[in-house]
Design a protein around this nucleic acid. Structure first.
Lengths: 192, 192
DNA sequence: ATAAAGTTAGTTAATAAACACTAACTTTCA
DNA sequence: TGAAAGTTAGTGTTTATTAACTAACTTTAT
């Protein structure tokens, strides 16, 4: 569980990441943005890694909510994938810092705890996506001529690159509007 | 143009990145690996940024060689895309550090020169890919029901994510062998 | 042909800035 | 009044980078 102040801190941290990338997440910058001094941060978090762990936990939960609520729904596989995209696009639009964190795995390479968190997140999503794809193939709704694992790479690859392009552009296009168009193309590709 | 020593330095830098990620590319680590002292590096490069610029230039040239040689060939669009994948897979297999650099754009966010270099690289490749896709669509070889720009996102997204997975796995599977299988799936998807 | 001048590639020693983090003291407020 | 949340002032480490100097080689000019 988290205190109100802890939540404020990780929200501020996400804002910082959003504005200037993960590299700008320093205790100094964070405390300045919170309007307190650096040591005050340590009243709420043991160290910087715990702040990052909290951020990753938030992301994991967010992503898990999206993926697993879709898994339970009664829609077709194509609709599920569509919802998966849509919800991610909405999520990223509302909190672009989430995208910044997803794409900065490299930064975490030297911290064991953080690598594990990131890996869990990716692995978890991949599993659910594969389940959806397999179901769709068994129902004869999705094309069978392509391995589900390959479909997963193609789908997630498109999603990731699209979000990345949006990020690189400095958020200059509407992720949700443009994203909806991409979804239609992805659906054309995976449907039988 | 570069001196022999400058080339040695960037090769060593790539080795360092390959072993422990871009974060381990420090002047200290670099000089240690070269068997000289830190200040000696500055006899050959003005500063660290110039070393990174050289690395990005190398990558840009490498990637450009692959893309533009394919553009000129007389093959079908699908074959061109296949070769694009294959050559990239080979390139990454031979020098995995290239993959490390491609995926660490985030690290460069605070250096204007480096963002530009990375952007150039991505933009250049995207242009050539679009040309190939448009040609294929006009020849009635590739499916016309999907916007070429969307096809490009789907193709490059798959390529990038696949290489990333290989990197995260610690290079535990054969990129070229497994990659060839993925190529077949991508071809099924884009062909009419 | 050779001494003078200059270059190349290295050294040791140091600096300044950024970083995460700590100890000890003070304020705030329920 | 006492715990929670802040402060000031500092530590130790890691960065990239510079200053001053040197040994060994190359070029230039007489």
């Amino acid at each position: 569980m988290q205190t109100a102040r802890q939540q404020e801190i990780i929200e501020t941290a996400l804002g910082l990441i959003n504005e200037n990338g993960i590299q700008s997440l320093t205790i100094k910058n964070l405390s300045k943005k919170l309007g307190i001094t650096e040591p005050a941060i340590y009243r709420h978090f043991e160290n910087k890694i715990q702040i990052l762990v909290s951020i990753l936990d938030l992301m994991k939960q967010n992503s898990n909510d999206i993926f697993s609520s879709e898994l339970k729904s009664e829609e077709s596989a194509a609709q599920k994938i569509e919802q998966l995209f849509k919800k991610h696009f909405r999520s990223f639009s509302e909190m672009p810092s989430l995208a910044s964190v997803v794409f900065s795995e490299e930064m975490f390479r030297n911290e064991k705890v953080l690598i594990e968190k990131i890996s869990e997140l990716i692995e978890q999503n991949n599993k659910i996506l594969l389940t959806i794809l397999n179901e769709g193939q068994n129902n004869n709704e999705l094309r069978n001529d392509i391995d589900a694992a390959h479909l997963a790479v193609i789908i997630m690859g498109a999603l990731r690159l699209f979000v990345k392009k949006w990020q690189i552009s400095g958020f200059t296009f509407d992720l949700q509007d443009e994203g909806n168009k991409l979804i239609q193309s992805v659906k054309l590709i995976i449907l039988k």
